[in-house]
């Protein structure tokens, strides 16, 4: 099987990687680039654990053909903040207890950053619409909604 060259911008760096033509973006991130922050929860675009941002928009990378991403700008959780220097959204999720098992967390956080980039003070309903493609089985969402509100406040203060 012939590998194809895929080039895109990943977490603000130009990347070139040889991929199988039928690989998904999630396969490439996890297998070829060793970025395992995006998770495979269902493999069919139903749970949002594989969410990454493509040109600033949340996308289910598990059903996104890798070669479709050619020339695009991809952001993954690894590109956000580090443990020593958390992004305000990451910090809010941690401080507000919006993280339990943590498996859905990278996707939740990325979707939240995309929302807050567009809408600096979203209403509760807007938060719910934005996060409706990210399933969480642990938290019951209450603390996630709080975390998004706190993150919005903290970003606005910056």
């Amino acid at each position: 099987m012939k590998l194809e060259v895929l080039q895109f911008e990943l977490n603000a760096r130009k990347v070139s990687v040889r991929v199988k033509p039928d690989a998904t973006l999630l396969d490439v991130l996890r297998e070829d680039l060793d970025l395992t922050g995006a998770k495979r929860g269902c493999g069919e675009g139903e749970c949002g654990a594989c969410t990454v941002l493509i040109d600033g928009m949340p996308v289910d990378s598990c059903i996104y053909p890798a070669l479709k991403a050619a020339g695009k700008n991809i952001e993954t959780i690894e590109g956000l903040g580090t443990e020593d220097n958390l992004h305000p959204v990451q910090k809010a999720f941690l401080d507000e207890g919006a993280v339990q098992c943590g498996f859905c967390t990278p996707g939740m956080i990325l979707t939240t950053t995309a929302l807050l980039a567009k809408n600096q003070s979203p209403s509760e309903e807007e938060v719910k619409v934005a996060l409706s493609g990210n399933l969480c089985r642990c938290t019951g969402y209450t603390k996630i909604i709080n975390a998004v509100k706190v993150a919005a406040r903290n970003i606005n203060k910056l």
Partner: peptide
């Protein structure tokens, strides 16, 4: 349609 992630694509 679906979810925000699906609608974006």
């Amino acid at each position: 349609v679906g979810s925000p992630q699906i609608r974006n694509v």
